[in-house]
């Protein structure tokens, strides 16, 4: 239990997807204009992440790693298919995204219109793919650990985009130099927020 808690806190704050690894920056910059849309995208990303990472974990464990296919029989025990992981992971992510898109379109059309192109683009949101690849690289011991890691990373991303949107809403009233308006100042603010998040570095859990 303590172990799970530490994975959770670590993935929300210390290894924050946005501030420590810059995952999902494209949609982070483009959709963080108002808090409401940011909220919607944050929920969608967290949801897709929590669904895809455990799925990919199971695929990785029972299909891809060396010796994973031993349940098929002796002759498969030495196969190592891990080079196929990219293509398998992205297929899972793309189909789950399609599902989420249909759900959002059915139940909250307003949010669907607001998110626009960025909903299908969750499929190519680096945060989601990065979550699966980190899960593979860090080699979590159980499926529960991987799920908690996914939940933490999703919430971390969500938190980051909401903070950013809130700052940008206030920023409309400030006098930013013209060439810096829009993306320029957003990058610099993200950098400053990243520095603030660095206080969590070096915390031992």
């Amino acid at each position: 239990m303590e172990n799970l808690l530490s994975i959770f806190v670590k993935s929300v704050f210390i290894d924050n997807m946005v501030f420590a690894f810059f995952f999902g920056m494209c949609s982070f910059i483009a959709v963080s204009k108002t808090v409401k849309t940011a909220m919607g995208l944050g929920i969608a990303v967290t949801f897709v992440m929590v669904v895809t990472v455990p799925l990919n974990y199971l695929l990785n464990k029972y299909l891809l790693t060396e010796g994973a296919l031993s349940w098929l029989g002796e002759e498969f025990a030495t196969l190592d298919l891990s080079f196929l992981s990219f293509i398998l992971f992205i297929a899972v992510i793309a189909s789950v995204t399609q599902l989420v898109e249909m759900i959002v379109e059915k139940f909250t059309p307003a949010l669907y219109n607001q998110l626009g192109i960025f909903l299908p683009l969750i499929a190519v949101n680096c945060a989601i793919m990065g979550g699966s690849l980190f899960m593979q690289e860090r080699d979590y011991a159980t499926c529960t650990e991987a799920t908690v890691f996914a939940l933490g990373s999703g919430i971390g991303w969500w938190l980051a985009i909401i903070c950013m949107a809130a700052i940008r809403e206030k920023l409309t009233y400030s006098n930013v130099p013209a060439p810096l308006k829009g993306p320029g100042i957003t990058f610099i603010i993200t950098g400053l927020m990243g520095m603030a998040f660095m206080i969590f570095m070096g915390i031992q859990l």
């Binding site: 501030f19 690894f21 060439p179 810096l180 990058f187 993200t190 950098g191």
Partner: peptide, 21 residues
């Protein structure tokens, strides 16, 4: 450290947009 990369890109955007008004 990661945050400075963002600030450098921000500055490049600043320069680029000053030229392409």
């Amino acid at each position: 450290l990661p945050p400075m990369a963002l600030i450098i890109v921000g500055i490049i955007i600043w320069v680029h947009r000053s030229k392409n008004t």
